[in-house]
Amino acid sequence: MVREIVERRSAITFSIVTVALLLFPIRHNWLAQPKDGFPLSYYPMFTSTRGEITTLHHVVGITHNGESVNVPGKYAGPGGMNTVRRQMRKMYHGGQAAELAKRVAERLNGSSFTERHKVVRVEVVKSNYTIKRYFDGETGPVSREVAASVKLAKRPAP
C-alpha cells in the first residue's frame, strides 16, 4: 500500500515536472533575442514577418548559351530542402561560397542534370524574388549577387 502511494506520487511529480519543462520555452515569445531549442521548443514556425521580397542563397548552373538554371539542393548537401537551404546560407555568409561551388561542380560532373541542361559552370548566388511577380509567372530574380563561380571539369557536348 505504501509502495503504491509512493509510486502514484512519483508518477504525478514526474508528469508535473515534464509538463512544466515543456511549457518553459513559452517565455522566448517575449524575449528580445529568442532562441529555439530541441526538444523543448516554443514552436515559432510561421511567425516571422515576410516582406514582398524574399532572399534565397542557392546554386545555379550556367548553360552553354549563358542561361541560368536552378541546381537542385541535393547536389549541395544531404538532408531535406530546409537543411540544405540553411547550410547554403551559412556557407555563403561564412565565406565558404567557393567551397560550395566546388563541391556542387564535382557532383554535377557527368550527372544527368548536367547533360540535360548542358551546364558548363556553377555559381553560388544570393537571389531576391518578388513574391507577387513570382506567382504572376515571372519566376526570375529581381536582383542577384554572385559570390563564387566554378567551371565544370567534364563539360557536356553543346
Binding site: R50, T54, L56, H58, N70, P72, G73, M81, N82, V84, R85, S127, Y129, I131, Y134, F135, T139
Partner: peptide, 12 residues
C-alpha cells in the same frame, strides 16, 4: 508563398 518559392527553386 515564400516556402513555395524555396521548394520550386531548390527542389524543382
Amino acid at each position: 508563398a515564400v516556402n513555395a518559392i524555396r521548394y520550386d527553386i531548390l527542389e524543382g
